[in-house]
Design a protein around this nucleic acid. Structure first.
Lengths: 147, 147
DNA sequence: GTATCTGCAAATAGTTTGCGCCAAT
DNA sequence: ATTGGCGCAAACTATTTGCAGATAC
């Protein structure tokens, strides 16, 4: 049965800084800000949403830096890209218990959902499985209620 | 256990024509060619691959027409887009038994795989599920053998 | 002091749109 | 005759690259 995932805990800036540092990256203001938004907003933001949100606080932040930071964080294994909506890539905190994603086709919101049992990177003949992504599409509870 | 799907049968041009016609679309040469490539090539081609392949046979074919045809076929429910690789959308025949997809991170080839048991659009509290996409990533048998 | 990071400007890739012409019903 | 489809050119969006100055260690 597919259910919504329990809310994960928030990460303090010093925790995020440590994680970035442990990954061998310099914990710049910009990277911490990008990582914090991805890890704590629960919004699975796109690069553009991250840029829009962070320029409120850091008006000099550039799009290039958002992309640079995201790439660095993805390469470091701290963030991962969701390919649930081509042409509008969303990002999620990587070190998390396995879960699937549900995107509402009305409001576009993405929800963390439990991962259905039975899915595993289980041995397959000759195939070496690195990752599994499960994407559900439909209408969320809020949009279902609306006429 | 994740295994490769048995090869599906090929569709003749007249079958494809009928499917396009039944969907309320005009079965133009271009649409039949695009649909045929998606339905029969088993390659899950991208728009660009379709364009490159078909201009060999139809040198006057335009990119716009490939996009137009794909959109028409998708809207008609005959073709569906795979979002397995953002920025490079691939297309697959839609009227097919449920299956998942495996993309090889070395050669980029996409394989049709069985769908792991346990995945279903099963009732969820308030969520109305329209579709489920399961994407595996890893290394395919051919690339595994290579040094 | 040196390697790394930021951010501007310009380039690129994939896709979409506007529109005139052609083809099918 | 009218509707729908094709394809050129141009626009658009998301992302990447080259590079110079700034920053952290």
């Amino acid at each position: 049965m597919l259910t919504i995932m329990p809310e994960q805990r928030r990460f303090s800036d010093s925790e995020l800084t440590n994680m970035i540092h442990s990954a061998g990256l310099r914990p710049s203001i910009q990277r911490i800000a990008v990582f914090s938004l991805v890890a704590n907003s629960r919004k699975h933001p796109s690069a553009d949403e991250i840029f829009s949100e962070l320029t409120k606080t850091y008006p000099s932040l550039s799009r290039t830096t958002v992309y640079n930071s995201l790439h660095a964080l993805v390469d470091a294994g701290l963030v991962r890209g969701l390919e649930i909506e081509c042409g509008n890539r969303h990002y999620d905190l990587a070190p998390q218990p396995p879960h699937s994603h549900f995107i509402c086709r009305k409001c576009g919101k993405i929800f963390d959902m439990t991962i259905p049992s039975g899915i595993s990177a289980a041995a397959s003949p000759g195939f070496c499985v690195d990752s599994v992504d499960v994407y559900f599409k439909g209408v969320c509870p809020v949009c279902s209620k609306e006429v």
